[in-house]
Simulated scan of single mutants.
Amino acid sequence: MQNVLNSTTPSHLTSPRPETLGTEEVLTFPAFFKSTVSLWVKFLLSVGLCFFAVQLVTWLPDIDHWLVGILHHRSILTHSILLPAIVWIALPKSMPVIASVLFAAVGIHLSADVLSPSQGYGAIWLPEPFKLNLGELSKVWLSVNAVMAFVFALNSCPEQHRYPLTGGALGGCIFYGFANENSGLAAVLSVAFLTFGYLIARRLSKFPESPIQISRRLMSQRVRTQQLAKLEKQRLEAERGHFCFIKRVLRLPYQAFCALWFVIIWSLRKPRTAGSIAALVVIAFISFYLVGSSSSNSFAGAVSNGAAKTLSDGVWVLHSSGGWILKQGGEYVAGTLRATKP
Rank of each mutant, 00 (worst) to 15 (best):
S220D: 15
S143L: 04
L189T: 09
Q221R: 09
F178H: 14
F193W: 10
I246Y: 11
H109G: 09
E331P: 00
L60E: 07
S320N: 09
L311H: 11
L13W: 13
W59Y: 10
A308G: 02
L218P: 09
F178G: 08
N6P: 07
T310Y: 08
L318K: 15
E181A: 06
V106A: 10
S111A: 13
F245S: 14
P208N: 05
R251L: 10
V87I: 08
I124L: 02
F103V: 04
L260E: 01
G292A: 10
T273Q: 12
T14I: 12
S156V: 13
V57E: 05
E239R: 15
F257N: 03
L77G: 00
N297W: 06
I214K: 00
H65A: 10
A112G: 11
Y332F: 12
F33S: 13
L115P: 11
R269M: 15
V41S: 01
L60F: 15
I174C: 11
C50Y: 03
P253A: 10
A300K: 02
R162Y: 01
I286P: 05
H319F: 09
I325Y: 05
F130Y: 14
H65F: 10
V106K: 03
G306S: 07
N133H: 15
L44F: 06
G306L: 05
G69Q: 08
E128F: 11
S296M: 08
G48Q: 08
W40I: 00
